[in-house]
């Protein structure tokens, strides 16, 4: 959306999982290979210092995108560029490490993402040791340096330096998430992928964590990829938002545009389904139907069976993301043809 080089550029990335039966069974039964298209041709870019969010229902491929970006899964095709360097061109660990250091991840469940047998100090120090981020020579010197750095990180996320001696089970969910954040910050990253960082937390704790993340973003000039299914949280944290459905992006827009003027029928449905805390008396229109089986997705536009304004073309032809105006991109035939959809949505 702007001319400068983005920090992260995801270009036509696909990720398929082979979910077919074992080879012998398949051959004997003469069945074809079954592929689950978890992420199918996704492109977006994130500028430095912004928060880009991915929203969508469970199973739409949000978390797979996160894992592809940090390199937990290899891509099936397409490229992921970080500051103009394509990851697929780097093959050796020592080529990748300097880039990998700059992107880290915060996971959803704070209890299972921390090793229960390690002290908090060691958990946070692991990236520092792994990337060799101490500069003084000698083991005792670097040990002291790590100790001080961990204390500093703990204080930065609102815990005390003495908490480093404890084990993860001694902390509440919110505090564990703070430890995860401290670990993510330990390698001095520029870019953090946050996969549902607050979904396991209570609202009051969620507010603390979101505020902490915002503070850190400002102090350390971080860039976030934020993944969530909670639209109110997404509204609060994001600059730009991508809406995903069945492994594809159906709309990308900046926050204001998306929330005041959602275009794609799926986005509109999703917004209609949000519980209304202001109690304006507006009736929620429940989304009809459910997410189809991703192994056998519907033909054409995958949303057509649930879409009130779908026609023959939607069943045949897959829509691609198209730039609607300077603020948004939408993948929908109905938008392109300017079909009237006001009758179906309020």
């Amino acid at each position: 959306m702007s001319s400068e080089t983005p920090l992260l550029k995801v270009d036509a990335v696909q990720r398929f999982f082979d979910v077919s039966k074992p080879w012998l069974n398949r051959v004997l039964a003469n069945e074809p290979k079954l592929l689950l298209k978890a992420v199918d041709d996704i492109s977006f870019s994130i500028r430095k210092g912004e928060t880009f969010s991915l929203v969508g229902e469970s199973g739409c491929g949000k978390s797979t995108v996160a894992r592809l970006i940090v390199g937990l899964y290899p891509t099936s095709s397409g490229s992921i560029e970080f500051e103009g360097t394509d990851f697929s061109t780097l093959s050796k660990r020592n080529q990748m490490a300097p880039l990998r250091r700059r992107m880290t991840m915060i996971f959803q469940d704070p209890y299972t993402s921390l090793n229960p047998r390690w002290r908090v100090r060691d958990i946070i120090a692991e990236p520092i040791r792994a990337f060799g981020l101490t500069n003084t020579g000698g083991i005792s010197g670097s040990r002291l340096q790590i100790f001080n750095r961990v204390a500093e990180l703990l204080e930065q996320v609102g815990l005390s330096a003495a908490d480093g001696d404890k084990y993860p089970h001694e902390f509440s969910g919110g505090q564990c998430q703070r430890i995860s954040i401290a670990r993510a910050l330990a390698s001095e990253p520029d870019f953090i992928v946050c996969d549902e960082p607050t979904s396991a937390l209570d609202v009051s704790v969620q507010a603390q964590i979101l505020n902490l993340m915002k503070n850190l973003q400002r102090e350390l000039e971080l860039t976030y990829l934020f993944i969530s299914h909670d639209l109110a949280v997404v509204y609060h944290v994001s600059d730009n938002i991508g809406v995903m459905y069945l492994g594809r992006l159906c709309e990308i827009a900046d926050k204001e545009t998306l929330f005041t003027n959602p275009r794609h029928p799926y986005t509109r449905m999703l917004f209609n389904a949000i519980p209304d805390i202001n109690m304006s008396g507006k009736e929620r229109i429940p989304v009809s139907g459910e997410v189809p089986n991703p192994i056998e997705p519907p033909s054409g536009c995958t949303f057509h069976p649930r879409c009130p304004i779908a026609n023959e073309r939607c069943k045949r032809e897959r829509p691609e993301l198209q730039i609607v105006d300077s603020h948004s991109q939408v993948a929908c035939h109905a938008i392109e043809e300017k079909r009237n959809m006001e009758v179906h949505f309020i």
Binding site: S172, G174, Q175, V203, S204, V205, Q206, A207, Q208, L210, N211, K214, L231, A232, V233, Y235, H236, F259, I274, I277, N278
Partner: peptide, 22 residues
């Protein structure tokens, strides 16, 4: 405190109100 800490769509604010501690 609980009500104020809930993010609301359309309400712009830099930080959410938070209750310290747990």
């Amino acid at each position: 405190g609980l009500m104020a800490s809930i993010p609301v769509i359309g309400r712009k604010m830099k930080y959410l109100a938070q209750i310290d501690g747990s």
